[in-house]
Amino acid sequence: MEVARHWRETPERYRMEAGKCSKCGKIAFPGRMICPECGSTEFTKHTLSGKGKIVTYTIIRTAPDGFEDLVPYAVGIIELDDGIKILAQITDCNPEELKTGDRVVAKFRRINEDGKTGMIYYAYKFVPDVGI
C-alpha cells in the first residue's frame, strides 16, 4: 500500500546515509535540500557511524498498531559520534537495565510489516555496544 513511501527512504534506513553541508559541515539526517544552519543547498553524502550513546529513552507499554508484539520495548534518542541525534528502537537487551549514557551501535533489523502478505519494513535499531 505504501511501497513507494518506504522504498524511497531506503538509503537512510538501510545504509544510514545522511547529507553533509558543503558550506558549514552540518550533518542532516534524513538528508535535506536546505541546510538548517547556513541555508546552503549543497550537500555531499555522509554515511553515519552508527555508534553513539543514549541521551534519553522510554519503554513503550502501549504500542502503536503493528508494534504490539514487541511490548515492552525501548525507544531512545541516540547521540551519534558524528555529532547528531537520531531516534530509534533499542533492542537485544532488557529495557529495564538500560541507562542514559550507555554506548549503543546500529544494526539492520525488521521494524514492522504491512499485514501478513504485505511489505516488510526494515531499518536500523540500536543494540548495546559490547565492543566487538
Binding site: 527512504e9 534524513p30 504500542a63 502503536p64 525507544v75 531516534l87 528502537q89 531499518a123
Partner: peptide, 9 residues
C-alpha cells in the same frame, strides 16, 4: 517517516 515509523507514539 522518522519517529512514528520506529514505533513511538
Amino acid at each position: 517517516d522518522y519517529e512514528a515509523f520506529h514505533g513511538i507514539n
